[in-house]
């Protein structure tokens, strides 16, 4: 998927957030030497293509009391995996949901769903809900709780990839 030079400049100018001023897109446009209409139009086009996924707030779920998270993993029949993944991904408690390859024999799971809750009991309750949703299509499952964050750096678009 190609991103034009101006798209990339707009992404760089907004990836840490929108200005909290009445006309934020005009302010970004001014900083880039563009027209407000071009910034709005390009963001709308990027949103239509899925490059912009959403525009809004990122709640800090730790600060809001959702301090427990578990990576729930499921071995579901391949033929059902896409349909079931979509159903699991649509749950409010699931923040990320992916199909990934198995690594047999150590790792039989192909569906990954990150589940959040106020505590581990709540995560387990939600995990049981997912198990019920998957039913017989699920052959095995596990949940991996994080013990320690070993490294966390923001994912940032860098100049290196600029075109």
């Amino acid at each position: 998927m190609s991103i034009s030079a101006n798209d990339r400049r707009i992404i760089e100018a907004t990836q840490s957030g929108l200005p909290l001023t009445p006309a934020p897109y005009a302010e970004i446009a001014a900083s880039l030497g563009l027209e407000e209409g071009e910034v709005i139009g390009r963001l709308a086009a990027l949103q239509a293509r899925g490059v912009v996924r959403r525009i809004g707030v990122a709640p800090n779920h730790y600060a809001l009391g959702m301090v427990a998270n578990g990576m729930t993993v499921w071995d579901v029949a391949d033929a059902e995996a896409s349909r079931l993944g979509a159903a699991v991904g649509a749950l409010d408690c699931v923040s990320h949901c992916y199909l990934r390859p198995r690594a047999l024999p150590l790792w039989p799971y192909n569906l990954f769903a990150m589940v959040h809750g106020a505590d581990r009991d709540e995560v387990e309750e939600k995990r049981a809900g997912i198990a019920a949703l998957l039913g017989d299509a699920c052959r095995d499952s596990d949940v991996l709780y994080s013990i320690r964050i070993l490294k966390k750096t923001g994912l940032r678009l860098t100049r290196k990839g600029g075109r």
Binding site: T14, L43, R54, A58, A63
Partner: peptide, 24 residues
């Protein structure tokens, strides 16, 4: 919104990009 960011209730306000779609 400024206050919610200040107290850490939100971590960011703005567009969220699909990093892979940007070429990463």
């Amino acid at each position: 919104l400024g206050m919610l960011r200040e107290i850490g209730a939100i971590t960011r306000f703005g567009p969220f990009f699909d990093a892979a779609a940007m070429g990463g």
